[in-house]
Amino acid sequence: MADYLYLITPFIAWLVAGVSKFIINSIRAKQLAFGLIGYGGLPSNHSAIVSSMAMLIALLHGIDSAAFGVALTLAFIVMLDANSLRRQVGKHATLINQLNKAQNSVQLRERIGHSRIEIGAGILVGVLVAYILVALSV
Rank of each mutant, 00 (worst) to 15 (best):
L124S: 12
G18R: 01
I37F: 04
F22L: 15
V106L: 09
R109I: 11
S84M: 11
I132E: 05
E118F: 01
H114G: 00
E118G: 03
L80H: 12
V129D: 00
V50P: 02
G90C: 07
F22N: 00
V19M: 08
R28A: 11
G90P: 06
A58Q: 06
R86H: 00
L59A: 03
A33P: 06
R109M: 06
I123T: 09
L99S: 13
G40D: 03
A58C: 08
L108N: 13
Q107W: 00
F68G: 11
I117Q: 13
A66T: 08
S65Y: 00
N104H: 13
V70K: 05
G41Q: 01
A17N: 03
L95W: 12
R28L: 13
N97G: 01
G18I: 00
V78S: 07
A54V: 11
A71W: 05
I132A: 15
Q98S: 14
V50S: 07
L36T: 02
R86W: 00
S84P: 00
L60M: 14
L60I: 14
T94N: 12
A130L: 10
A130T: 14
A82F: 03
F76N: 10
K101W: 11
L32S: 09
Q88I: 14
E118D: 06
I49W: 01
A17D: 09
I49E: 02
G69K: 12
L42A: 11
F68M: 09
L59I: 07
N83I: 13
I37Q: 03
G35F: 02
G113P: 07
L59Q: 12
L108R: 04
I96S: 02
L42W: 08
S47W: 01
H61V: 08
S105I: 07
I119Y: 08
G126P: 15
A66E: 11
Q107T: 04
F22R: 04
D81N: 10
G90Q: 04
M53C: 07
G113Y: 00
S20A: 14
S51K: 01
S26M: 12
M53K: 07
R111D: 14
I112R: 03
I96G: 04
L42S: 10
L85T: 14
G40E: 02
A17S: 09
A29V: 02
L36C: 01
V129K: 08
S105N: 13
L56T: 05
H61P: 05
L95S: 09
I77F: 10
H114W: 07
G62M: 10
H92V: 14
S47N: 02
L36W: 07
F76Q: 09
A102N: 12
R116P: 13
A93M: 07
E110M: 06
L108M: 13
Q103A: 14
S84G: 11
I24T: 09
M79Y: 06
E118V: 02
A71K: 02
M53V: 15
R87L: 10
K91H: 15
G113K: 00
E118T: 00
I123G: 04
Q88T: 14
L36S: 13
I57F: 04
A48V: 05
F76H: 11
L85F: 14
L85E: 06
N100D: 08
S51H: 04
A93V: 04
G90M: 09
S52E: 01
K30G: 05
L124H: 07
F76P: 03
Y131W: 14
M55E: 06
S20N: 05
Q31V: 08
N45K: 03
H61N: 12
R87H: 02
N104P: 03
R28F: 10
